[in-house]
């Protein structure tokens, strides 16, 4: 068993938020006394991540995702709990720590606004003291995979969002970090750009064995990339496990679409209800746990003549939405 690359124990981050009273008298009273609210942005979460994993970190806005990421990258000092990343406590040895991670925060660029992309990369080579041949080798490979050539001599300020994101991801990996943090890497991108970035993340994880922790709003990112997901809400970790199990546990009703060989009026069956009836095609809904698909098919084939059938799993997106909305995990 390899040693975890990230270990987090009972991590907490509380913020004191100043309450602003409104109006002139309010402003004066603000000066006289500070009213603060305590916000538990991260409230005692624990997890470990093994080298080589690709983990999706999900949660609605304000759930504590960014705060966790800021602590893992050494930007924020925790209020309580313990945390090791690459065998270091991030905030205690900030410089040594950030030299061994890559981080892309979707909304902001780490590149120099007025410089051509390639010159930003050159500066990064000097900042991270990347050996010449490693730099050249990485750059050649990433240029190709991320298709950077068309805009590598363009100043960063003139890049499209998708181009900038690709340049930023490249920049974050030139120094071969064993660990990559991605905060909303596909936000605001079109389908083609999203797919290119996903492919690259897969490559980095599979071929380079880089451990990746990514937050996203786009569940198709998660579906296509991550085997493991963690879900956070109100600062607490609600779920940590395989994506498939999540669908298994909270997926709601599955559907069985049957094409019969002959017409039946109301071909009812015990344990499932008819959702839709269209000629020979009938859709049944059935609950996970109360009946399996094969049992249902067995019951149906005793009563009716079946030509073809198909089981439909609920989409992950609606599953996770249900988890937030119905608070299934609390």
């Amino acid at each position: 068993m390899p040693k975890p690359i990230i270990t987090v124990k009972e991590l907490q981050k509380h913020f004191k938020i100043q309450k602003h009273r409104r109006g002139l008298t309010g402003a004066l009273r603000n000066l006289a006394s500070f009213h603060t609210d305590l916000v538990r942005a991260v409230d005692g979460i624990s997890f470990t991540i093994e080298p080589g994993e690709l983990v999706g970190y999900l949660g609605p806005n304000g759930a504590g995702k960014s705060t966790t990421l800021k602590m893992l990258t050494g930007l924020l000092v925790p209020t309580g709990g313990e945390m090791w990343v690459n065998d270091r406590v991030p905030w205690k040895e900030r410089r040594a720590h950030v030299a061994k991670i890559g981080a892309v925060f979707g909304q902001r660029t780490t590149l120099w606004w007025d410089l051509p992309v390639i010159e930003s990369f050159d500066l990064i080579q000097h900042i991270y003291q990347i050996p010449k041949n490693q730099f050249k080798q990485n750059l050649d490979e990433f240029r190709d995979l991320l298709d950077l050539d068309r805009f590598i001599n363009t100043p960063v300020r003139s890049l499209s969002l998708g181009q900038r994101m690709r340049a930023d991801i490249c920049a974050a990996l030139l120094h071969n970090p064993p660990l990559l943090f991605l905060d909303e890497p596909t936000i605001g991108l079109d389908v083609v750009a999203k797919e290119r970035i996903r492919q690259f993340i897969r490559f980095i994880n599979h071929d380079r064995r880089t451990t990746v922790l990514l937050t996203t709003h786009d569940l198709s990112d998660v579906e296509k990339l991550c085997e493991r997901v963690m879900i956070i809400d109100h600062g607490k970790l609600l779920y940590d496990g395989a994506l498939a199990d999540l669908a298994e546990r909270f997926g709601g009703n599955r559907e069985l679409v049957v094409e019969f060989s002959e017409m039946y009026t109301h071909p009812e069956v015990e344990g499932a209800e008819i959702i839709q009836c269209e000629g020979l095609l009938v859709t049944y809904g059935f609950e996970r746990g109360s009946i399996t698909a094969s049992e249902l098919i067995g019951r149906l084939s005793v009563k009716y003549r079946i030509h073809d059938l198909k089981v439909r799993e609920p989409e992950i997106e609606s599953t996770i939405r249900r988890i937030y909305e119905e608070k299934l995990l609390e």
Partner: peptide, 14 residues
Amino acid sequence: RLGLFDQILLRPVN
């Protein structure tokens, strides 16, 4: 205000 100081803290430089 723009959060650019975070980018500074993300680099292994003083």
